[in-house]
């Protein structure tokens, strides 16, 4: 059993992948906690695909692909906001439109910009955590540490803003900045995760651990803690599965995190489905017993001995 665990650790690509997986598990859970309470899951989905439009441009201009992805992600969120606030088109239609159009821009530019066809779109879509370099691990560490520090520094402001945006604005807080910061943080997280799980699956890493924790604990900071542990665990277990089953790493991690969610959905002590059914059953037993008692009491009351 121990060999089973230690063997992959002797491989340097597995060491890097595990370090990255743990870091991203923590980062995604923290950023994901805000997404859950702000109901930004679909926005994250739209941004994660829209980043593809920036890749070929960054490649041709000669800057890091991640910068191109980041800029495209933020621009997509801005265009989305513009459509939502200045027209009658509803959010979901606007998101579907932006998501697909930005992917289309990316696909077209990859084939028409000179040299951009060297970008591997399959790699962008699915990622490959086993191919990460040490530089990417250091970058992820830096982003995670900065993320944790920022959340710590602005925790009370972000709590107020995400719980009651109107109340926060009425208190004079610069709520548009907090909104923009959350969207930027989400986009940065998506870009950092792209090489690991790819654009198609990245949102699962953001949503699943935080949503699992949401079913288990009652306060935002607890969701961040528990979500981080679940996120890191999902990465580790997913990576081992991928190693032994020879399955794609990103998809394995996502499936493990979904399994954790299902466990919480069924067995969470406060709101698990099975726990709920069990308590209802117990309660109905009690009620039945009460009814029996009632009949007994009625019989006693009506029995001849009671009549003096």
């Amino acid at each position: 059993m121990l060999d089973w665990i230690i063997e992959p650790l002797s491989l340097s690509f597995m060491q890097r992948a595990l370090m990255l997986g743990i870091l991203l598990g923590i980062l995604c859970a923290i950023v994901g906690s805000y997404m859950i309470v702000q109901q930004m899951g679909m926005l994250a989905h739209a941004i994660s695909h829209s980043v593809m439009a920036g890749l070929p441009i960054a490649y041709v201009v000669g800057v890091a692909l991640s910068i191109g992805a980041l800029v495209a992600g933020v621009i997509s969120a801005l265009v989305l906001y513009l459509i939502e606030s200045r027209s009658r088109v509803k959010t979901d239609a606007a998101m579907a439109l932006i998501l697909t159009s930005f992917v289309a821009i990316g696909v077209v530019l990859v084939s028409i910009l000179p040299g951009a066809n060297r970008i591997d779109l399959v790699h962008i879509l699915f990622g490959n955590i086993l191919g990460v370099t040490m530089t990417e691990v250091w970058w992820s560490l830096a982003v995670t540490v900065v993320g944790i520090i920022l959340v710590r520094l602005f925790f009370k402001e972000l709590l107020f803003y995400t719980f009651d945006p109107k109340g926060a604005q009425a208190s004079g807080m610069p709520v548009h900045w907090y909104n923009a910061s959350l969207i930027t943080a989400m986009t940065v997280t998506i870009v950092v995760c792209l090489p690991t799980v790819g654009a198609l699956l990245v949102v699962a890493l953001l949503v699943a651990p935080a949503a699992t924790a949401y079913l288990l604990v009652k306060e935002l900071h607890q969701i961040m803690w528990v979500g981080s542990i679940i996120g890191a665990l999902s990465s580790i277990v997913g990576m081992y599965l991928s190693y032994y089953l020879d399955a794609p790493s990103g998809a394995s991690i996502v499936l493990v995190s979904f399994c954790f969610f299902c466990l919480a959905f069924l067995f969470s002590p406060s709101e698990g489905l099975l726990v709920d059914l069990w308590t209802q059953r117990q309660r109905s037993h009690l009620t039945d017993a009460d009814e029996v008692d009632q009949t007994l009491v009625m019989q006693r009351l009506n029995s001849p001995e009671r009549k003096f």
Binding site: V37, E157, G167
Partner: peptide, 20 residues
């Protein structure tokens, strides 16, 4: 207008008055 499923306690909601 309020999300009553938000994971926050009574104490922390009232503390929000002191944020600014």
């Amino acid at each position: 207008r309020v999300d009553w499923d938000y994971p926050v306690t009574v104490w922390n909601v009232v503390m929000m008055a002191q944020t600014v």
